[in-house]
Design a protein around this nucleic acid. Sequence first.
RNA 1: GGAGAGGUGCAAGAGUGGUUGAAUUGGCUUGUCUCGAAAACAAGUGUGCCGUAACCCGGUACCGAGGGUUCGAAUCCCUCCCUCUCCGCCA
Length: 432
Amino acid sequence: MLDIQYIKQNPDKVAERSLQKGYKVDIATLLKVDDKRRQLLSEIDGLRRQRNSATESIKGRRPSEEELTQGRVIKDQLASKESEYRQIEEDFIIRLKSVPNMPLDDVPVGLTEDENQVAKTVGDKPEFAFEPLSHHVLGEKRDFIDKIRAAKISGSRFAYLKNDLVKLQFALISFVIGTLTNPEVIAKLIKDNGLKLDPRPFIPILPPAMLRTAPYQASARLNAEEVTYKIEQDDLWLNASAEHTLCTMYMDEIIPEDQLPLRFIGYSTSFRREAGTYGKDVEGILRMHQFDKLEMEVLSSPETGLDEHKLAVAIQEHLVNALGLPYQLIRKCTADIGKPNATGIDINTWFPSQNTYRETHTADYMTDYQSRDLKIRLKRTDANVEFIHTNDATAFALGRIMAAIMENYQTADGHVIVPDVLRSYMGNQEQI
RNA sequence: GGAGAGGUGCAAGAGUGGUUGAAUUGGCUUGUCUCGAAAACAAGUGUGCCGUAACCCGGUACCGAGGGUUCGAAUCCCUCCCUCUCCGCCA
């Protein structure tokens, strides 16, 4: 959520910037509710003060009838004020949480994703002397992907991945973990991009795949209806990305400044209901209920947050470039960056069979919007406590990136050339 | 799944209804001392909210979480979560 003090000081700006993201928020009512809330709070504090001083004056002796009566009066008043306060506060929190994060000033203003900007286009599209197959035709032909049997067992949007495609996935995982835990790679990317950041490498993480309602809600990323599976019986949600269990890891903690930045590269199977996407991407493995993903998550100081975002994007480009895939870097406009994000970049990778670039990566910078909910703070060396900034970014969504590899590297006889950087992880296999 | 024991500050650990936001010890910070360090001594050492834009200050809340009883709750009651021990089951 946003800082109420900030909203109080910049009501018009907050309303305007929210609208640019497609959120119509009633700031006037929010501030009115906040006034009422604080008014009640100080009344409650006053009553408690009376109660406390009465208690102190009674100390160890038996209270008189008069004191008992007076105490009951205070108790009743408190009970009524407190119940009123709870209602007001609930309303206040709902209203406060409905305000999206403010986009950074350089985020393009746009009301639909059509107004996203192509920041750059990188790499040469492959030229084929034959009609390139879609990844799902190729996948079926080579017995890499079996969705028919998966549908029998688990339903639509599930797949058995098989044979060399499985080896390719493990190669990709090893490649990413190896790259992001290598301090020299991180240092070089920081230097090449002119960033002022600590060069420490990413910490590899295998996080839990399920989490409770409270942390999920606090992550500001719970979209129960459309995205996430719930296990009712146990009050657990299947994570929709490693991000959910990574950003919540330090919930309610105060981190000493010198421990930041905390950079994590998490691997997790991700589960998504994909409600409302009927008919979209039904073929192949671009949009599944279950897929594996490597996700970067960075907790940092406020002053380095934006550079961490730039580093994440630089890493994404480094990874996609290493695979030799053509891509576009997309600056998402205000309507598309998402509620908790201050800025966001997508990478869209070339899919020859669709003759288009498809989203394979996203990088989101949340400033302190997420950490305020999660209560993740840093302690400065001078003892000041502030909210940290958070970044998350895709390293590889494995299904989509393998689909891209299959399509871009296919041969006339239906094989797939293994990108150079992955071969050492596959027993130097040159094609699958 | 069954039986039992627990959860208090940075750490250990006291506290079973009233000057307990919390003893004591250790850690850490600062100061005195010292060429410097150690030792000793002294002081300090949590987070949030409100007053308030900020500091100081004042008020208030927080002893796993949430409810309840009471004039008054870390302490009593209820529900939940977590940890440990034993049994069972299991990759």
